[in-house]
């Protein structure tokens, strides 16, 4: 099994730990990832606010590159960890497919640069790939440090399961919960799995953005979670980096580590925390991880 990997701009910047942990985990379970050569911005959110057509063309260039680089016999498989990129690329593909006029316009533009846009490619999120392709059994079999006793709030964010993904339930997603359970931890039942974290509002209309993030964190705290597991670089950033400001603003002790779900898997697989980028987080989850790892005795092999 091998995939083309589309990191997107965030995973090379603020979301570096996501990339590091993702690559480390896939390496450990022997799934080959090959970075998409010369990939460009997916054209998501902020770009969409200026030109929709050009946003679709940006995505389309990535599709053409993926097809060119694809070494499999079937359709190219593109692994997209960033939620905004995942949505942006998925949306572009969906629209190019649904609106033939749009497709021919974009195709014509791509022709100018000798890029060939042909059939659809398969756009996959790591949650989907780990749950459906790799399988929970493989994950379980590779666990060396079960995370018994750790409680996670699994936060999917808005743009992974909505509105184009078909690998999970749009209203009550479960894939991350199952993955967290597979490594021996507990996925706390909470209703805010897909509630918006505020997105880029934390940087633009701050009071509103912070309030949305605060609602998520305080609910996770109330339900006794040790950490919040995320699958999106912007969600992780919002929930983690503004905790100090939220504490001041809402006078509420919030300290709770926000980790990527790939870091959780990595810890259970016994990967070196440094390789998982744990040192890049503002609030280190290391003590929580280690405390549980030594106290938890039973192995989760079934």
């Amino acid at each position: 099994m091998n995939y083309l990997y589309y990191p997107g701009c965030s995973l090379k910047g603020t979301g570096k730990a996501y990339e590091e942990s993702l690559l480390a985990v896939f390496d450990t379970i022997n799934v080959l990832l090959e970075e998409l050569e010369d990939w460009n911005c997916c054209g998501a959110t902020a770009y969409m606010s200026i030109s929709e057509l050009k946003a679709f063309a940006l995505s389309a260039r990535n599709f053409a590159l993926a097809e060119r680089q694809n070494r499999d016999t079937g359709t190219a498989r593109l692994l997209v960890p960033c939620a905004a990129c995942y949505l942006g690329l998925n949306k572009a593909q969906r629209y190019l497919n649904e609106y033939p006029e749009l497709f021919s316009t974009v195709k014509e533009a791509l022709d100018e640069a000798d890029l060939i846009l042909s059939g659809p490619i398969s756009i996959r999120h790591p949650l989907d790939v780990i749950y459906s392709d790799i399988g929970l059994k493989t994950i379980k079999d590779n666990v060396v440090r079960p995370l018994q006793g750790l409680k996670f709030a699994c936060y999917y964010g808005c743009q992974i399961v909505r509105p184009y993904a078909d690998f999970d339930d749009q209203f009550k997603p479960y894939t991350m919960d199952r993955i967290v359970q597979a490594v021996g931890a507990e996925a706390v039942d909470w209703p805010l799995k897909t509630r918006c974290c505020g997105g880029s509002l934390t940087g633009t209309i701050k009071d509103v953005g912070l309030r949305l993030s605060y609602i998520l964190i305080s609910e996770a705290k109330k339900r006794g979670c040790d950490m919040i597991a995320t699958a999106c670089p912007l969600c992780q950033f919002n929930l983690e980096c503004y905790q100090k400001e939220m504490r001041k603003l809402y006078r509420h002790e919030l300290d709770i580590p926000i980790v990527y779900f790939t870091q959780i898997i990595g810890m259970a697989l016994g990967i070196d925390p440094h390789k998982l980028g744990l040192h890049r987080l503002f609030m280190s989850p290391l003590t929580a991880f280690q405390m549980r790892a030594t106290s938890g005795g039973v192995h989760v092999r079934n």
Binding site: D38, V106, E112, C241, R280, F282
Partner: peptide, 28 residues
């Protein structure tokens, strides 16, 4: 703090074949 954690940089990210992308945009 972000800088110290290696998550913030002022480096300019860029693709290699800028002309290719530009001709696509221009065509539109």
């Amino acid at each position: 703090s972000l800088f110290l954690k290696g998550r913030f940089s002022l480096k300019k990210e860029t693709i290699q074949r800028k002309n290719e992308l530009r001709s696509v945009i221009k065509a539109l």
